[in-house]
Amino acid sequence: MKRVYVNEEWCLGCRLCEYHCAFANSGKTHMASALMNVKIRPNIRVEDDGKVCYAVSCRHCEEPLCVTSCITGALTRENGVITIDGARCVGCFTCVLSCPYGCVRPTGQGAMQKCELCLTNGGVPRCVIGCPNNAIVFEER
């Protein structure tokens, strides 16, 4: 099954993945209008301590603690992809408390959000398409 993997040695720390992710999930058609003057909340995040940098996004774990811990049943894993039903999520943060990678975060509007592999954005993750250096890839490993 194809997943998002990161090649740490290729990451430039440019954070374009964060912008592409935020744009893809904004529902807007123009990048500028989607991102101008907004605090973006991407589902992929670059960690950078000045020495190393790389991007982190949901691993779509086979034994997903976010799903088994979800108190509402809003998080589910189907065909290897973990998705969240924003209408059922009440924003209790139990998934935030459970995810070992820190990859579930609040939308700012009450519910939580996470990487859904751009299932509804054309099927190829936009962070991958937008990465200028092949540091983020979508492949079987």
């Binding site: 997943r3 993997y5 090649n7 740490e8 820190g102």
Partner: peptide
């Protein structure tokens, strides 16, 4: 995940 070192990240993030 910075604190966990390269080997951990290679396993978890790079498969």
């Amino acid at each position: 995940l910075i604190a966990f070192g390269r080997a951990y990240r290679d396993e978890k993030l790079a498969g």
